[in-house]
Nucleic acid binder design. Structure first.
Lengths: 136, 136
DNA sequence: CGGCATCCCTTCCGATACTG
DNA sequence: CAGTATCGGAAGGGATGCCG
């Protein structure tokens, strides 16, 4: 989900190893998409933008636990991938609004269904975890 | 997605800060679920188990780029959360099969729809990225 | 208000070696 | 085959300070 970095020793994914790029197009699509929105905050940002455009600090308040730095980084990344738009209104102080692109809206649909699952099943997961942890 | 660790200085999430636990139950469900399944490999493992149970090394071969260590860690985590079952057949050499629980199957549904989005839209994301990177 | 730059500690995770 | 243990580098990300 970050800007291009140059690997020094460790290469994250096998298929990005020099000479093993598999022609640069045949990577698993899910892997590729998760590499961009599968981080800690992207999904939450998208969910919070689904209803209407939101300003930077409002977004920051809405997403519990996110730091200013990570919100900025996450928004830039989503903007780069064509999922989020950034609109500056040159007032003083400036207002910056973030919203979803059409692509972003389309991604918000499966994400919302994941959110629905989360809301319905988190208790099941908690109970399973407790049971497992008791088992040893 | 990891076993319980004791934070030393930095606390990952605000709402886990001592005195700010929000009673230990009111955390955003999506955040909570993503903390367990939102890592690099869990989603891919679940997708690969959706059809039928798969043995350890078969799974390793199926998931491009995963290391043995991360496959083990990921499977343990999913098992702990009640999403995956582990079945040992005491032959020599031993055969260990992993499969989805009912809970895991139910999670596989929204995950599959995310996968469908990924397959349909990765080219859009690539193009958006190229355009953005040209823009500066 | 909405950022960016730097510092620096923490966590992740691949590589490697060893076991039942 | 299916793991576990350990190590060390790389990456993640909070805190802080400065800016238009």
């Amino acid at each position: 989900m970050n800007a291009p970095t140059k690997p020094t020793t460790a290469v994250p994914l096998l298929h990005t190893t020099p000479g093993f790029e598999t022609d640069g197009r045949s990577t698993c699509p899910i892997r590729e998409v998760l590499d961009r929105v599968g981080d800690t905050w992207s999904i939450l940002v998208i969910i919070n933008l689904q209803e209407q455009p939101v300003r930077f600090n409002a977004l920051k308040r809405a997403i519990e636990g996110i730091s200013q730095r990570m919100l900025t980084v996450t928004l830039r990344s989503l903007e780069r991938d064509g999922l989020v738009t950034r609109t500056v209104r040159p007032t003083t102080p400036p207002e910056v609004e973030y919203g979803l692109t059409e692509l972003g809206q389309s991604l918000a649909v499966p994400i919302a269904s994941l959110g629905g699952w989360a809301a319905s099943n988190r208790d099941n997961m908690r109970q399973a975890r407790e049971a497992f942890d008791l088992g040893t």
